[in-house]
Design a protein around this nucleic acid. Structure first.
Lengths: 226, 226
DNA sequence: AAATAATTTAACCATTCAGTTAAATTATTT
DNA sequence: AAATAATTTAACTGAATGGTTAAATTATTT
């Protein structure tokens, strides 16, 4: 049943059962469906839901446009699969660090390391996620529900830990959100910042970004040493 | 000549000469053109160039869609007028603070005050500007050219001043970009942050934002006290 | 008052776009 | 081998969209 994934309950990318059983597909070749998905991901991340064209995705995948509908039923379904998968990858990283067993201070340092690596590997994704959630905040609610992640638990865990270790007198959300801003903003606003502050020099901006890991760590640790 | 503004050299919103001469138009009533422009601004800022519909802008202005073309010739011209005006307002604020006569330290404090006020009054504008520049980085080059602002001079002035006062051993761009991230990101990513960290409580998030002025000042001053 | 210009309107056009379909092809099952 | 199912394709449909136009209305000029 090719439209199983269009259930209103669950939007996620699942390779076909026959693909899974057929070990040959776990080699160099990807299925048609996977190719479509990955082409869609590349186009949607850059152009967003409304800017992307189904024909362009089909061209990127190297196949007929009707196949997109055959496998995913609609543009919206395809987009939701891409968004959910992408968001989950980013959010899981955050959540795993937060729920790990190390100290809050170590968590921040580890988080910065992992997060910058993640953004460097996917520089357009933060804006893609922010734009989509701003376009339709309900999508975030349904994602939280589906992933079983409760924002309140994240918040409580974080507040309790920071409070118990007395790291700082500040509301820790100021620290976290400042941290996120310092990490994400230079990637999201790159064309503007590169031109205004780096003479549109791509190499110089890359160097600037690579320096940020240590600098942001130092800044954050300075914040919390109250 | 109603299409004067479509010159390739200059895109800016100018009230009609007859409007200027006719003092009555400087009262409560706005011209048709101004109404279209402001409706376009409201729609473009929220939905962007591709998401906005000309019919929707016409509806927002309360008039026939053909009038949009009569006054602005095309969707793109209308958008450019809105973008240029909006960007200029934001950028002028930054530039004025930077070129003022006070010390670098005072500049940072004043900048934070002015900038948060500006963003609070126009919460969707930062993302609007970032999205458009990311969509078409060339638009920024032409805007810089038209406004006579040279990014290099901004950079040099800033670097020289920070260097001469020996505020910090850091490359000052790290400070400025961190500052911008801490200021802008909480507005740009509001739906996400509000849900994850504030239980989707709008009042709590507003309170959080109002606290940020002082907190960001303290953080920044801590950065530069080397 | 008449002529001219500017503004406004309803209706329309051409293109773009997501989505659909019948038929052909390929793969799988019996 | 034949039947059945899945996949793929070229062509098409209907809606949405930016843009245009002729005509009517209003404003301004002579």
């Amino acid at each position: 049943m090719k439209y199983l994934r269009q259930s209103n309950i669950c939007f996620f990318f699942v390779p076909k059962l026959t693909t899974w059983l057929n070990q040959q597909d776990n080699t160099m070749d990807k299925t048609t469906e996977e190719k479509i998905y990955e082409a869609a991901r590349r186009i949607f991340i850059i152009k967003g839901m409304e800017g992307a064209r189904m024909q362009e995705i089909a061209d990127e995948a190297g196949m007929n446009k009707a196949l997109l509908h055959y496998y995913f039923r609609s543009k919206e379904n395809l987009f939701k699969a891409v968004f959910k998968d992408t968001f989950t990858k980013f959010f899981i990283k955050v959540k795993d660090t937060l729920f790990s067993d190390i100290s809050a201070k170590e968590k921040l340092v580890v988080f910065i390391d992992h997060y910058i690596d993640l953004i460097e590997a996917n520089p357009y994704v933060p804006q893609f996620i922010i734009n989509e959630i701003n376009r339709d905040p309900e999508v975030l609610k349904s994602l939280m529900f589906e992933s079983g992640v409760e924002p309140r638990k994240i918040l409580e865990l974080f507040l309790n830990e920071v409070q118990s270790t007395n790291l700082s007198k500040l509301d820790p959300r100021h620290i976290v959100i400042s941290l996120l801003g310092m990490l994400i903003f230079p990637f999201v606003a790159r064309p503007l910042l590169q031109m205004v502050y780096f003479n549109d020099d791509q190499e110089a901006y890359n160097k600037f970004l690579s320096e940020r890991k240590e600098i942001v760590k130092n800044m954050i640790l300075k914040f919390i040493e109250a």
